[in-house]
Design a protein around this nucleic acid. Structure first.
Length: 633
RNA sequence: GCGGCCGUGGCUCAGCUGGAUAGAGCGACGGACUACGAAUCCGUAGGUCGCAGGUUCGAGUCCUGCCGGCCGCACCA
């Protein structure tokens, strides 16, 4: 079945909308123009499948909303007989419509099971190339919790856009040049003594990060000493200005700057060291991404894009779009957009962050002819991207209108902002290890509890313990990482999050493992049902219709719309919320009704089909978030 | 100072383009495993949706002002 074919549920909805419009038109005076009516989910499932608020019709029909609802209800009740609508009832100013049970459930369940993994996918994007740039680390230190949020967000958005029919190019723009890199290099030159990640048995990015820390320590000590000297001599009484002065005089900083100049000049020795250290870091990152389940289609390196940026700026200068000041620096005046003036080239001709981003933007367009280019970058850079997009527009690039900054909130710890200098940074690699270990511990300790309850020493207990250990090994990684990913994705990207370590590994409540667990129950039911001879071929879907089953139907029908909206808004948290709702609805259903022991064989078959459809949608949704769904846990 | 984002139960969050009684989870308290998986389910308590105006038949949602918080306004990235 083609993903572009409308879902059976969408077709049902369209038929209802059509019938509703016809009924409304019949009530209207000749030639009246009626507003489009929204078929919304009613507040409770027992009210029906669609609700229509009749307020918007009041003006054109010249009748109060309750009377309109009443008239429409009568018109639609009479028009039945073809198995579409079972009920049309007015409830005050609202009109509630109930679909024929058989039509509803066979459309939904049949569609989900027929489409399988493709349920919720759509061709609407038309295969247009869209780039999602994310992660974009610096090569001077390992990744931390902030990167983890960025990584999972960019990954999920990429998956969601692909599900909406876009050709997604996942890009990683590596910030591999600049003063911060030179700091690590300088420290290594001074104290490295030929050590390597291999010789020390340390992951490459962590190895280089240690030298960055060494630099910062040395620099800080140097500045502190100089500040004290300045104060003692009374040279500069203002403490703030004294620190500024001391920083400028710092030999380590000056040496790092000298290293940057030599790098830009192409000094072979400096370049060789740079390449060597960057390779170490990138190797480390590759390992981090692999564990995290993240992959990229394309790497860009700042060291390869900044020159194009500089050229572009210089050509803008020639065309008079940019201005050069007396000191030689180049600026763009965006005061018309209320963005002030922005430096694009330093007076010594070297590039800044913005220069490089101009070059990268051009390169991306040249490489892929993108319909859209999305930057997944934290909200602290909102201003930067406003300036970048305006500058590109000003320089004459019409495609600048198709650039989009997916701005996400900062990640804080319960004790506040992460600070490298205070050692409160949560390391990405350590974090992954922690969540995986936490899950393993939880699974084993729970198995022990069960063992104690079941009595000591029996063979059955021993067998159970063995099985628990086996499962713990099998699921620790997918469930641990699932917990982490879900925890970071269930918040609206825009909002800041306070990372609570305890909640991030919790398996209960609104968590990824809760959804995974729910999905894992369903294969178990299937197995049991097959063993008991429940036959889906003999299922009668029109027997479904209790409140819990209707809630599941409503959720299943909504899923494609959720995927579409998540793509439109670049917001994976919509998928996460949906999954919690569906999982909750399923668990409620499962607790209250029997599948295997249902009142009749056709009902048992129908419930089994419904359960399998739920399992499919749970797996599909988790897949969009990059979370695996183990079949047992 | 200017600009952007955000204020919803003790805590963490939902709340679609304004629509029926503001929903979840955690935490607290009380229940449900001799029935398909208790990582589950059920119940109780807990909310003047920061404050004040305005628009509207209708405002948590839109507009204005104020209060509070975060981020930014570098020849750092």
């Amino acid at each position: 079945m083609s993903p572009s074919a409308p879902t059976a549920f969408a077709l049902l909805k369209a038929r209802v909308a059509d019938r509703l419009a016809t009924a409304a038109l019949a009530l209207a005076p000749e030639g009246a123009d009626l507003p489009a009516l929204d078929l919304a989910p009613p507040p409770r499932v027992d009210l029906g499948d669609f609700a229509v608020a009749c307020f918007p019709l009041a003006r054109s029909l010249r009748r109060p909303p309750p009377a309109i609802a009443q008239a429409l209800a009568e018109a639609l009740s009479g028009a039945g007989g073809d198995g579409l609508l079972a009920r049309a009832e007015a409830a005050g100013p609202y009109l509630n419509l109930t679909l024929d049970r058989g039509a509803l459930f066979s459309a939904l369940v049949g569609d989900v099971l027929a489409r399988g993994e493709d349920y919720g996918r759509d061709d609407a994007g038309g295969g247009r190339p869209v780039m999602v740039e994310f992660s974009s680390p610096n090569t001077n230190k390992p990744q931390h919790l902030g990167h983890v949020r960025n990584n999972v967000l960019g990954d999920a958005v990429s998956r969601i856009l692909a599900a909406n029919g876009h050709r997604v190019v996942r890009a990683n723009l590596v910030n591999d040049r600049g003063i911060h890199i030179c700091k690590s290099m300088l420290a290594y030159q001074r104290w490295g003594q030929g050590r390597t990640p291999e010789s020390e048995g340390v992951k490459g990015d962590h190895f280089v990060g240690e030298y960055y820390v060494l630099f910062e320590k040395a620099h800080k000590a140097e500045v502190a000493a100089e500040v004290q000297r300045i104060q003692e001599t009374g040279e500069q009484p203002d403490p703030g200005l004294a620190e500024q002065l001391a920083t400028e005089r710092s030999a380590t900083l000056q040496d790092a700057r000298a290293l940057l100049r030599r790098w830009e000049a192409g000094d072979p020795g400096v370049r060789a060291l740079w390449q060597r250290m960057n390779a170490w870091v990138l190797e480390g990152f590759a390992e981090t991404y692999r564990r995290m389940g993240i992959a990229f289609d394309r790497y860009y390196f700042e060291s390869e894009t900044y020159l194009l940026g500089r050229e572009t700026v210089l050509s803008g200068l020639e065309r008079g779009v940019l201005q050069r000041r007396e000191d030689g620096s180049v600026w763009i005046d965006l005061s018309a957009e209320d963005l002030g003036e922005k430096l694009l080239l330093r007076r010594d001709g070297t590039s800044v962050y913005m220069t490089q981003d101009v070059g990268t933007a051009l390169l991306k367009m040249r490489d892929y002819g993108l319909a859209r280019s999305i930057y997944v970058v934290a909200s602290e850079q909102d201003h930067h991207f406003q300036v970048l997009f305006s500058a590109l527009r000003r320089m004459g690039y019409a495609w600048a209108d198709h650039l989009h900054h997916l701005s996400y909130g900062m990640v804080y710890l319960p004790e506040g902002r992460m600070k490298t200098r205070e050692g409160t940074v949560v390391d990405a690699d350590a974090l992954m290890t922690e969540v995986v270990d936490a899950v393993r511990d939880l699974v084993t300790s729970r198995a022990e509890e069960h063992g104690r309850e079941g009595g000591e020493g029996s063979a059955a207990v021993a067998e159970q313990a063995r099985l628990a250990a086996e499962i713990a090994d099998e699921i620790a990684v997918p469930v641990g990482l699932g917990a982490l990913r879900f925890y970071l994705l269930r918040f609206n990207p825009r909002s800041d999050v306070t990372f609570n370590p305890r909640e991030s590994v919790s398996l209960q409540g609104d968590t990824g493992p809760y959804v995974q667990y729910t999905a894992a129950r369903i294969p178990g039911i299937e197995e049991k049902a097959r063993a008991e001879g429940v036959d889906e071929a003999g299922a009668d879907l029109s027997l479904l219709g209790n409140a819990e089953e209707l809630a599941l139907a409503a959720a299943l029908g909504r899923y494609p719309e959720v995927v579409r909206e998540a793509g439109e808004k670049l917001n994976p948290s919509l998928v996460a919320s949906f999954l919690l709702e569906l999982a909750r609805a399923f668990n409620k259903f499962y607790k209250q009704h029997r599948v295997v022991g249902a009142e009749s064989a056709p009902l048992a078959g129908a419930r089994l089909s419904l359960a399998r459809a739920c399992g499919q949608v749970l797996r599909n949704g988790l897949g969009l978030l990059g979370i695996e769904a183990p079949s047992r846990m």
